[in-house]
């Protein structure tokens, strides 16, 4: 009896507050927009048969025909991909440096990487607004050193979005790579050198392949949330920054078009399934390799 309750309580909670809402989104994505409260039709009140009969894929055909949407999906994918690569380029040397640091520093370095996790995401994004704006510190510095004569427009561009994503998701990249590098036996590099590799060759032939799992895990941990990101493009990006999270938000709050917003959400999820499955597979492989 106790076992039943133990399983039932969290189970029912998740069914009611995770699965059912998601099914509702799916259902509404197949409904039509209406000037009513709630602003869509049909609703449950119309009866089950009418409900099923009236559902259609109209919203999805609308999404396919209006190039705003598929451009937003493509642009989200591109921004997420570029930011992931940038985060890898920035994060790998840091993780590598941490793995090479003296034993007694490592705990502190770890804590320094994790600390930003606990501080507000919103504040971390906000911090860049003051730095990147036209009168911001970065432009002041660039002009003072004479690199540029006119302030650079960085805030409200895609560049600012890249910086924001790299900055906020950097710990997600560093930690799995550090974990992989930390496990790496130093004698493997020495063996490679002993067999005739230069240090650089040993790095490419041994260190990189053996930290592959960490690289893959870190990349997905950045790519997946970056794809649906809302706060960063809306604070740092400009009107030209198209990201699907922002589109969904605007569709819902500004246009109050719930069926279209729901359709946008459903497609975003479909896109996310591929990287999520790949990520899962990588994690499983890693777990198996450890056994």
């Amino acid at each position: 009896m106790r076992r039943f309750a133990l399983i039932a309580v969290p189970y029912l909670w998740l069914l009611a507050l995770f699965l059912v809402p998601f099914l509702i989104v799916f259902k509404i994505s197949l409904s039509d927009t209406a000037l009513a409260i709630p602003p869509y039709t049909p609703t449950i009140k119309d009866g089950i048969s009418a409900l099923i009969a009236e559902l259609d894929f109209e919203n999805f055909t609308f999404l396919a025909s209006d190039d705003l949407y598929w451009k937003a999906y493509l642009s989200s994918l591109r921004i997420a991909l570029i930011s992931t690569i940038l985060t890898l380029i920035v994060g790998y040397p840091i993780a590598y440096g941490m793995a090479r640091a003296p034993e007694e520093w490592r705990a502190t370095l770890m804590m320094l990487v994790i600390l930003p996790f606990w501080t507000s995401f919103l504040i971390r994004v906000y911090a860049w607004m003051g730095i990147l704006s036209n009168e911001g510190l970065l432009n002041q510095l660039l002009m003072w050193t004479g690199v540029v004569a006119e302030p650079l427009q960085i805030l409200n561009t895609n560049t600012a979005v890249y910086i924001g994503i790299v900055y906020t998701y950097l710990p997600f990249m560093i930690l799995p790579i550090y974990a992989a590098l930390d496990r790496l036996d130093e004698s493997l590099n020495e063996a490679a050198e002993d067999l005739g590799c230069s240090r650089m060759q040993a790095f490419w032939l041994v260190t990189i392949p053996l930290s592959r799992n960490g690289i893959v895990a870190g990349s997905f941990l950045v790519f997946i949330p970056a794809l649906g990101e809302f706060v960063i493009p809306s604070l740092l990006g400009g009107s030209g920054t198209l990201m699907i999270g922002k589109v969904l938000w605007e569709e819902f709050f500004n246009n109050r078009d719930w069926p279209v917003a729901s359709a946008v959400a459903v497609i975003l999820l479909l896109i996310l399934i591929i990287p999520i499955i790949l990520f899962q597979r990588n994690q499983q492989k890693q777990a198996e390799a450890e056994q």
Binding site: F18, P21, V25, I44, E229, G245, W249, L269, F279
Partner: peptide
């Protein structure tokens, strides 16, 4: 339904916040 259960535990971790938010709002209104 063990598989469904573990799926529901792990899915919210990768679910974009906009989707979680939207779906819950639609439930509350519903």
């Amino acid at each position: 339904g063990r598989t469904l259960f573990s799926g529901m535990i792990y899915a919210p971790l990768v679910m974009p916040e906009v989707i979680t938010g939207l779906s819950l709002l639609l439930l509350f209104i519903g």
